[in-house]
Design a binder for these strands. Structure first.
Lengths: 153, 153
DNA sequence: CTTAATGCAAACACTTTGCACTCCC
DNA sequence: GGGAGTGCAAAGTGTTTGCATTAAG
């Protein structure tokens, strides 16, 4: 699988037809399991872990195997249809669209939230100028306590 | 093991005697393996993964087992002598001192850098006021490309 | 001498991989 | 029909746990 051209990486909406087109343009085959994973991602509509995604995809294509979901997610990521986020301890997360989105995971209850990206821009710039480190903000999850859990403590 | 009182959580320097004192104050025994892990952390002097730490500790106490290192790290964290950081894909990291320190991991070469904490404060406040999410900045690693790798690409 | 802490091995959670079979193009 | 993609099982990481034994206090 070789890169073809950068797909519109920051789209959140990937109508199945366009996603399939993107796969083909990348030289990939459009298979039942891949369609199922795409559809599952659309239905779930957010940032999810592999287990959740597998469960959902299996409703659509019963036989689909966990390993296939992992492989599919990697493929979709390469093609630029999806991206994955490393969340602290737990499993990593997947979502439709690119890496511009920011995710926050609650250490206490595990809740996954999409959060606005603007506030981190200053940090990105600051780190780039002071240390030369080029932060990829969408590639890792922010951790802490969600509003609800923070209130309880 | 019950909390006694909050140890000076943000110290980086933990002379062995003081660390042992802190352990005792917490109701923990001061054992050879624990001394070895503490000493190894001191010698390594930064933010390290369990494998590195184990290897180093084994030089001091040859028989020391990996599982013991994990348990010791957890104990030291509870006591407030050490803290751990979740780094994206790889293993989690440990260091002497508290969670106020920020760590950046290069996705490309794996380099672990301590970075200044001030720039993230604005993000913490911004997230707290806009979404209620209380970020714990020292608890996860920032990811991206280190200066060297960023230059090469 | 009491019981926390260790060593060991086994289990654990998450992810990847080798291989034979399938089914997309 | 040829090869990318799949299912399956097995291995690979990183970390935790149960249990008999050791050693700190």
């Amino acid at each position: 699988m070789k890169p073809d051209q950068r797909s519109a990486f920051d789209r959140r909406s990937w109508p199945p037809e366009e996603a399939e087109e993107a796969l083909r343009a990348y030289g990939c085959r459009v298979t039942q399991p891949r369609i199922a994973v795409l559809q599952a991602l659309l239905e779930l509509g957010g940032t999810v872990d592999a287990a959740t995604l597998t469960e959902r995809a299996q409703r659509l294509v019963p036989g689909i195997h966990e390993a296939t979901v992992y492989r599919t997610v990697n493929t979709l990521t390469e093609v630029g249809i999806a991206s994955h986020v490393h969340a602290g301890h737990g499993p990593s997360l997947v979502r439709l669209g690119g890496e511009r989105q920011l995710v926050a995971v609650c250490d206490s209850c595990g809740k996954i939230e999409d959060v606005p990206t603007e506030p981190i821009e200053a940090l990105v710039e600051s780190m780039e100028t002071t240390t030369g480190f080029r932060l990829q903000p969408g590639h890792f999850a922010l951790e802490g306590m969600c509003a609800r859990c923070a209130q309880q403590s």
